[in-house]
Structures are given as structure tokens and as C-alpha cells.
Design a protein around this nucleic acid. Sequence first.
RNA 1: CGAGUUGGCUGUACGGUUGCGGGCAAAGAAAUUUGCGUGAGGAAAGUCCGAGCAUCGCAGGGCAGGAUGCCUGCUAACGGCAGGUGAAGGCGACUUCAAGGAAAGUGAACAGAAACAUACCGCAGACCUUUUCGGUCUGUAAGGGCGAAAUGGCGAGGUAAGAGCUCACCGAGGCCGCGGUAACGCGGCUUGCAGGUCAAACCCCAUCCGAUGCAAGAUUGGGACUGCGUCUUGCUUAAAUGCAGAGGGCUGCCCGUCCGACGUAUUCCGUGAACAUCGCUCGAACAUACAGGCGACUGUAUGUCUAGAUAGAUAACCGUACUCGACAGAACUCGGCUUACAGGCCAAUCUCGGAUA
RNA 2: GCACCGUUAGCUCAACUGGAUAGAGCGUUGGUCUACGGAACCAAAGGCUAGGGAUUCGAAUUCCUUACGGUGCA
Length: 105
Amino acid sequence: MQYRRLKKNRDFNILFRKGKKVFSPYLTILYIPSDETVMGIALSKKHGKAVRRNRIKRLIRAAFSECMDKLPFTCTVVIMPKVAESYSFDDFRASLLSAFRRMQK
RNA sequence: CGAGUUGGCUGUACGGUUGCGGGCAAAGAAAUUUGCGUGAGGAAAGUCCGAGCAUCGCAGGGCAGGAUGCCUGCUAACGGCAGGUGAAGGCGACUUCAAGGAAAGUGAACAGAAACAUACCGCAGACCUUUUCGGUCUGUAAGGGCGAAAUGGCGAGGUAAGAGCUCACCGAGGCCGCGGUAACGCGGCUUGCAGGUCAAACCCCAUCCGAUGCAAGAUUGGGACUGCGUCUUGCUUAAAUGCAGAGGGCUGCCCGUCCGACGUAUUCCGUGAACAUCGCUCGAACAUACAGGCGACUGUAUGUCUAGAUAGAUAACCGUACUCGACAGAACUCGGCUUACAGGCCAAUCUCGGAUA
RNA sequence: GCACCGUUAGCUCAACUGGAUAGAGCGUUGGUCUACGGAACCAAAGGCUAGGGAUUCGAAUUCCUUACGGUGCA
């Protein structure tokens, strides 16, 4: 299953203005229903230096591609991690799944 | 054996399943699929210097401005490196140093008598007054005091008291000789030594520098009519055609030089401007050997191709081993500097101390 | 990625060309006034000048370096 990456600053602004929010322990997710699945990651410099930020993005990408099937409908998504001491793959995956369940309602 | 000094290397390893960027090959009309191989660092970082490269109509001169500052080399270049000199520190191996010029000029708070020569206390002499205390003049930089700094240090002679006033030694300046490419060193002679410190204060001298940076820049956005705005002074011409003048560009200013257009809107024709392409990785490249040089480095030969992304590629899960893994992620490319860094390893006929023979 | 700027009291800013106690306003605390509060007036506290090093007799100021914050560039 494939997904596109969200890249344009314009598209991010649309989501920040009109997207619906879903919260989970480690992530904040903005989404808008659309024809195909598009995913973007918003990560500020507060999360640390380049190595740390790259690590977070890789974990989110891996977790998203694993549990993308559980999405209730195709939509455009922006994922924003919360600042924390440490991160793990399992936390992100659990957060994504719980957020997807809440989107279904 | 212990304690050090200097220089260098390394920066978890192996396996399985599922994935990611680039390349090559094959299949396919295409989307795409399959296979092979490849994919972060010593600092990739900070952006502190130096270059390549690109654009700025030309890349010219001067002023302004900026940088550097012992000597000789190395280098494409450098504010870098190497080898020396001098000074400071260390028992030593060794380490550190923006290390030109203060008789070109300006400036330097407060305190202090004085910070270009000046006498506050003191010391000494002479005179005055005199019971004493004292006062005036002169000499004096040895002592006190002020200060970050007080006119070279120390000892002896000398003197009314003192003073390079005289002498020895040390320091400083000058001259000569010798050694060294040079910085400078050594030796001799000579000058009693009229002036300190600060130039990472202004400044002077010497040398160097055009500006902007890959978000530079190039390609595919082209043509026609019309309108509007900026510039448009005069003469002339069919015409911005020509001449003079004004204006504008070229680095902040001047000289000099270049320029006749520039911007924008509507309509029509055309249309691929965005998940674009190029710049974008073969280069002052890397590895090995030999040669030259104390060394930085250079030359020759052979071999290798070693990321090229663009919301930005190295991940997820599992297993095994150990000393249980630090700092940290390429973004046009090189040469340096600086800063961060768990641990491990190596070298030097290196240094000091102890023990034994 | 590239270029550049800033950091001084709780907050907003000064401090001239290095010179001594680093000032001002707002705020805070205490007092005067008032029946009480506000306003006004008087007084006080509060600073390792972002951290470290260098130059200098002397550094908020000059130089080097680190950290943090911010601005511009299609």
C-alpha cells in the first residue's frame, strides 16, 4: 500500500487552518478527508539537533507505513510529535492506532 | 614499576525478515515490476578564514573601508602549515605567545608635589627671629608618602646632604668585527644613559583585498495590438535620427566609462512552471610503492571510482557476542582553523623518579 | 543552505571615543496621607552586564570562543 508525502508549505497551512485535530499520548494529528492517503510530518527545532529529529521522523514513517491499513478512510494527515525525553517505535504505533480509532467516531 | 610529554590510528561486530534514496540491466505501450550492486563524518557541526565556480553591461584608477604583522620556506590561496629566532613557563621531555613602529602627532580617569622637570614630608647648608615652637632662601630624587607605573639595578667611593658625580658588575643605546639567506647570536670598543607604560586607544609604516553568494546562476514563459506609469530639456529628423544637456547603471564617494529604454495591465494567439531539468559530483581526488627534502610538501609509476537527496534517502522487529557502544547526520566543491567527543590501540634509540642486576 | 543582528534589575531601555558608586521608567516592598482602598508623595531592595578565556593599571565597552534568541534571502 502506497502513500504520498505532503510537501508544499501551502498544503500544510490549509491543514493547520481547516484540519480536524486528534490527540494521543505522544502525537497530535491533523486530518482532512481526501481521495488518497497523503502524510506529512511537522517537527520543530525544539525536539533537538539534527540526529534526534531525523530519528523521530524515521520512527514515525515506519510506524505509519505499518498501521496505515487501519485508517478508517483515506485522508490527508499531518503528524506532530510532542516534546518528550525519549521516543520509541511502540509508543508511536500505539498512539497512531488509538488516534485512528478516535477518527472513526 | 610509577608519573608524564609529543605525534598518530580507531570510533561496536555478525546474521535473519520487512522497508528507503541513487545507479545499472532486463521485462512492459505505460504506470510499474524483478534482479544486481551501492549509500554520512572525524568532526558531515560552528560559519571564523582562504580558494574554485557563477552573476553583477566593463571589472579600469584614486579616496574611504577592511584584514594581516619576528624570519625563511610550503601552498592554487590563506589569518593555515613546517623549520628556525626571541620572550615567558616547566627539574625535564616539552609547551605557550596578534612578537612591526612610542625621537610624526593626538589621548590616557582618580590619587599624587610632580605622569614633558616637578620639592608634600624628609635630609643638608646659609640667613632671620628666638625662651622654645619656628620662618625665608638654596641644594638634594637617598628615604617616606601617592599610584598600575616615579626617570635603569646593585655595591663601593664620594659629599654639608645627595646625585652616573666617579668606579666595578649587570641592563640599555651606538659603532666595529665574526657567524647566519634572514630574524638574530657571539665577541670587542664606546656612550653615564634627558627618560616610562599603553598601538586587541586613535594613529603611522609595509603587504593584501571589487561586490554578492548555489535561495549564485542557466534552460523551457514566447508573440501581437492597445492603454497606463517612470525617465523625456532644447534644436533637428520620416523615426529616441543626430547633436548638446539632464537622468540612470557600474561598490559607499570621486574620476572614468556605459545606456535609450524600463515597469505594468487588459485582450487575442500559444501554453508543459512543477513531486521540473541543469548547476551536482572525476576532483588542487583517494590508495599503494619509489625518489627528493630536517620538515610542511613535491615529483614519478600503478591502481580505484567512492552518497548526490530536495518536507530531504540508513529505518522497524528479532537473534548472537563483548569491553555494553561518545560526540553527532552530507545539501555546490575543496584547503585550513575552532568547538564537541565514552572508550580502545600504537609509536618515540622521548623525559623524570624509584627498584633490581 | 547562505548572509546578518542581538543578549544589561522581574519587564522596557540607557551608559558618549575603555576610567571606577552601571542609570531611568514601569513593577515589587515599606512608610506618609485616608474610616478603608486608589491616586499622589517619600524611602528601600533588586545586577557575577548570557558563560569562559585574552589584552590592559583598569573591560558592560576591545579581541577570541561557546550557548541562547531573532531577522533577511525563490
